[in-house]
């Protein structure tokens, strides 16, 4: 499944790296439900959020500057940071 990472830039504790925001990738696997770190970091009662691994090509992330366009980066992203493409 193809997804795009939200290009959102709020303050606070976030586990979605800046270099992947706004980028498109493919869900590699679903991992399960975890405490939402954006609440957990403040010791708030955390909602369970789905975490998935997303695979991005270097070409998508770095454009023409990619070291090797077909190499990939895989990262765990919470689904509330993702939208279907």
């Amino acid at each position: 499944m193809k997804v795009r990472v939200h290009s959102h830039w709020p303050p606070g504790h976030i586990r979605t790296p800046a270099y992947l925001r706004g980028k498109q990738g493919e869900i590699e696997r679903e991992i399960g439900l975890f405490n939402n770190p954006e609440q957990n970091a403040y010791r708030l009662a955390s909602e369970q959020r789905a975490l998935v691994r997303v695979r991005f090509t270097m070409a998508e992330v770095w454009g023409d500057g990619a070291e090797t366009p077909d190499d990939v980066i895989e990262a765990e992203i919470y689904t509330h940071w993702l939208e279907p493409v």
Partner: peptide, 15 residues
């Protein structure tokens, strides 16, 4: 080698 794909795993969350 050029014909080998590099996969970088960014340990961003719980794994």
């Amino acid at each position: 080698a050029p014909d080998v794909q590099v996969r970088v795993h960014d340990s961003t969350a719980d794994m």
